[in-house]
Nucleic acid binder design. Sequence first.
DNA 1: TCATAATGCTATGTCACATAACAGTCAATC
DNA 2: GATTGACTGTTATGTGACATAGCATTATGA
Lengths: 160, 160
Amino acid sequence: MPLEKTQPERNPEDAKFGRLDDLVGYHLRRASIFDLQGVGSALERANTRPVPMSVLLSITETPGISSAEICRSLGMQRANIVPILAELEERGLFLREADESDQRVQRLFPTRRGEEAATEWLALVAEHERSMLRRLTAAEQTELRRLLAKIWQEDGPKQG
Amino acid sequence: MPLEKTQPERNPEDAKFGRLDDLVGYHLRRASIFDLQGVGSALERANTRPVPMSVLLSITETPGISSAEICRSLGMQRANIVPILAELEERGLFLREADESDQRVQRLFPTRRGEEAATEWLALVAEHERSMLRRLTAAEQTELRRLLAKIWQEDGPKQG
DNA sequence: TCATAATGCTATGTCACATAACAGTCAATC
DNA sequence: GATTGACTGTTATGTGACATAGCATTATGA
């Protein structure tokens, strides 16, 4: 074993999950809550929240994306993106444009203010992440992100 | 046709956060949601949910723990543990006993059935974890758990 | 003794998220 | 070329986890 926990006496035979603390999912949840609280308070300064930020970033990173595509990408329901888009639109952060060949879909494009807001919000979150990950080396941070992505991303040969 | 998320090439020097995908917190959230769904459906077979399982495990791992101690350990509010304890108690999984020196405190002890339920529930979750982590080596799983714990646990070596 | 704090608890609010249904549009099949 | 099914954006509504505020009781300590 590479690393040992400095916790109670563990029987080597007991290498299976025997305690709450052994569950990766427990630490996942605690770490995610910890992160969400930090992100939440960081984004308060920009008067927004995590999900609207993710939606805006989806638009700035993929101009012309549709709301349904954002929902599939972020794993959220179409119904729930409606008030979020309404809020971002009211703040003048993106524009809707009818698709040329499919009148059902609206293509979403960031405005100049939307680009600026995305950069600003991302900086706030990045500052929080630096604090949250301060006790991890750069290599550990990269490894952590890689392992997390491997958990939730589908098997299919997606992006590199 | 849906837009393909053609990503711009990443310059390795450009190590700063520029995209949603670069944020560890984003992957944390997605992985945690993924886990929570799996744990939820796994525990459905035992007619329970993640938080009651964590509470029961707190009792079996630390017999005589109080409800306030469980709340501090799990990071939850005292008000919210009340219906959970009521449910576990109704299922005969633990007993309350008055503290000898402090009449405010109830000490919680697992029953035989509580011990059995804890083992059974933990096995269900462990089975889910094996599936969730199937693409990670044993060393990677250990490393992931270590890095996650380093994120949310306070600086002092504290158990919880 | 009086102020402060902790425990277990009730009542209630909030907020993210899911479900169900809708009209309009598209595409494929018969 | 009607029809069937699927997809889009949307409204309305339910739900479930979680937080807040306050209570009576008990403990602590200046």
